[in-house]
């Protein structure tokens, strides 16, 4: 196995590890840190793939992702947290061990689904597909168990990381136009969310999601 493939696999494992860590993390600031870390791993893995497959466009992609996910978005989130006064808020997560256990089961499930697909793949780092799927499922799980708007968004962003990870490591990158579009959507989305948080807090005095589930039929 060539070196870059080993590196990619290592990064993939780290990626998954961070996803697990995010699932269990209670403090918002740490969550954002973890998110930035995940973004960094993502960018590195894109670089590794770009190096291994000699695709220059992937470097651009790595730069874009790195800029966005290691710097811009975490910065925005830090600012938000500070302005909303949430920096040291911690969330009540129920039964972290159980959660991790569920995550483990999901992991196994994801690998199981990915196995037949990975066998077919022509690309070298085919095993990362299972990891991408697992991290997507873990992020979804994280969104389900989180109770505040901000952490939910972090779950969402991490989900998006997983997707990009899948796109780059498994398929050696999507066409640039699409990547740009995706990036644009993500950044606009985060801006909108930022605007949103203020409105939500204005109206509900909290970002706790339990508060605003009362308008239902």
């Amino acid at each position: 196995m060539p070196l870059f493939a080993q590196i990619t696999n290592l990064l993939a494992a780290l990626f998954l590890l961070v996803a697990f860590a995010m699932l269990a993390q209670r403090r918002i600031v740490h969550l954002i840190n973890l998110y930035a870390l995940q973004g960094g791993i993502l960018a590195l893995s894109i670089v590794a793939v770009g190096y291994g497959t000699h695709q220059e466009s992937l470097y651009l992609s790595a730069a874009l992702n790195g800029l966005l996910k290691v710097i811009v978005i975490p910065l925005i989130l830090y600012r938000l947290v500070r302005r909303l006064g949430l920096a040291w808020n911690r969330e009540n997560l129920l039964r972290v061990p159980t959660l991790l256990l569920v995550g483990l089961v999901l992991n196994i499930f994801a690998f199981d689904v990915a196995l037949p697909i990975a066998h077919l793949a022509g690309t070298i780092n085919r095993d990362t597909f299972g990891i991408a799927l697992a991290s997507v499922l873990l992020s979804l799980l994280m969104m389900i168990v989180r109770t505040t708007a901000l952490t939910q968004v972090l779950g969402f962003l991490s989900l998006e990381n997983g997707l990009i990870f899948a796109a780059t490591s498994v398929t050696y990158g999507m066409p640039m136009m699409v990547e740009l579009g995706i990036a644009l959507d993500v950044i606009v989305g985060v801006f909108i969310l930022g605007v949103f948080f203020f409105h939500i807090r204005e109206e509900f005095d909290s970002l706790d999601l339990h508060r605003f589930d009362r308008h239902e039929e």
Binding site: I144, H210, D213, E216
Partner: peptide, 20 residues
Amino acid sequence: RRRRIAIYLLYAFVTLIILL
């Protein structure tokens, strides 16, 4: 209708698992 976004996400999640 469970009044919780988390529950709705859970629906999506479970449906996804079932489909897979």
